[in-house]
Design a protein around this nucleic acid. Structure first.
Lengths: 292, 292
DNA sequence: TATTCATATCACTAAAACTGATAGTTATTA
DNA sequence: TAATAACTATCAGTTTTAGTGATATGAATA
């Protein structure tokens, strides 16, 4: 079997029930399909259609071969889709890396849209601590990064401010602070704060340290678990605790000094002066709207 | 993409590293492959090979397309295999039905060999009670049946005697009969026998009924479970209890009147005067040796 | 029975695939 | 470094295949 066009004739004739209809759909004259199918039958030495009736009807052998022919045509279409993708200069792979605090519904929605728009471009998604995001991009191990803003990197990579990630100060509903109103800094001092271990010496913490007794964890999900256990209070990304607050499991602290919600800025990170293919370009633009 | 031969040139050239080697393997001259690949590149508008070196080397685009081309060729091979199967007049489907007492290792081994020999023929395997096997075949719902011999069917279907299925009289190791030697018919009378419910009135039981108190079950696996529970003794197909006897869980009864192992005859059943395709023919011949 | 709709066949043309020869290029080796 | 071996590209000519348009024929329909 070498002739894909004959397989198209075969399948279209089955679908449409006649050689002439099949010919019209394939942009040929009737005799082309008639001969094409006849040649296919000769090549395979298999009778595919029964012509004793007005409209050709599939033989059992044709029925048996139909799914295999369809499988070939399907693969041919896949092949063509990749060819088209290449000719649109779409990348084979885009790699995105972000702080795991940023794995929020709006982000996964963007990734799902990406999959729809660029079915022939693979996506590699990594979550790591914000600190490492920039270096992953700079070392060429990721194409786009998203991280808690840190201007000290702006000589090494391109940064693009896209919005603020709101953090809530929360504790468990049974924790002493939950029932307090108008909490000021002094009130927090005796309570345990759980903070993100960011192991960077050169810059400030992304969340403020307010209690005297601080425990550290390297992942917001760990911190969340510890807060739910009632071990202390913490600043956590709003999207991570929204549900638990609604369910009454966690409480926001009524802090007098947080006149606005604590919201550190978020940057997109890309390699310096690096050209982007269409898939990367689309993803970059989509991520700009992450906080809209 | 319509030209499968060009894809073969593409893949063979990758495998063999040169157009000339690829040409030799495909039975063409070098220029045919050279032009073939060139035409493919023109059709796709994608540069597949870098010719600046002595031997052509894949471009990144070629690399990206390679697995898709291989997928097409794979499907084409599958298609051809089915065509070959059809031309050898192999059946699309063979249906075999047998008494579940016969589901023994030797049988599953034959089915595994069938799968090797006839990868393009589907196999439908049904287990039902021996009584129904013949009628399934007669009604055209199975191609080959295997059952405990019952000559009353030989006007309706073709029967072929293939051997005896040995049955052991067994009970649980703790059951009173287990410790008895030289058991005669009278010794059995007070003990409960568990027998196969064959719901046929016109013929004898396939296993003899010897106790006064008889329980019935419609499946040997059910009977086996009941015997293991210590509910009574029963005749069971040897292959079903071999393991448990070795493990000491079940015991063979030392029956004085069973001078030989009780072994009812087994018949292959096929539709009367029905022609067989090669797959069915092979399976029929293989099943003849089931008890060798 | 006439009509319609579909297919098969055929001679012809257009397109494509292939061949064999040749010229040019890249490695290897003497 | 020059000769050689092992490739590839190109081209004119040929063969093969695919497609066209006209025509004949056959099956359903009314």
């Amino acid at each position: 079997m070498n002739n894909v066009e004959q397989l198209r004739m075969f399948i279209e004739t089955i679908e449409l029930g006649s050689f002439s209809a099949s010919a019209k759909k394939l942009g040929k004259v009737q005799s082309a399909v008639s001969q094409g199918i006849a040649n296919l039958e000769i090549d395979l030495d298999v009778q595919l259609f029964d012509r004793s009736t007005r409209k050709p009807s599939l033989t059992p052998e044709g029925e048996r071969l139909k799914p295999y022919a369809e499988a070939i045509l399907h693969q041919v279409n896949e092949f063509q889709a990749v060819v088209d993708s290449i000719n649109k200069e779409e990348e084979a792979l885009v790699r995105i890396t972000f702080d795991n605090a940023l794995l929020m519904p709006a982000l996964t929605k963007i990734l799902a849209e990406f999959d729809q728009k660029f079915p022939n471009t693979s996506l590699e998604v990594n979550t790591i601590s914000s600190l490492q995001v920039a270096s992953e991009v700079r070392l060429g191990r990721a194409d786009i990064g998203i991280m808690l803003a840190n201007p000290s990197f702006n000589k090494l990579v391109d940064l693009c401010f896209i919005g603020h990630l709101p953090f809530y100060a929360v504790c468990h509903a049974q924790y002493p602070l939950a029932s307090m109103s108008k909490i000021n800094v002094g009130d927090l001092t005796p309570h345990k704060q759980i903070a993100l271990k960011e192991d960077r010496v050169e810059t400030n913490q992304s969340t403020p340290l307010l209690s005297a007794n601080i425990w550290w964890a390297n992942d917001f999900l760990n911190i969340k678990a510890m807060v739910i256990e009632g071990l202390g209070w913490s600043y956590l990304p709003a999207h991570l605790v929204e549900q638990e607050i609604v369910a009454g499991q966690l409480c926001k602290l009524d802090l007098t000094f947080d006149y606005k919600i604590w919201s550190p800025p978020i940057d997109l990170v890309t390699e310096k002066n690096h050209s982007r293919g269409p898939a990367q370009e689309w993803l970059f633009e989509a991520l700009k709207g992450l906080f809209d």
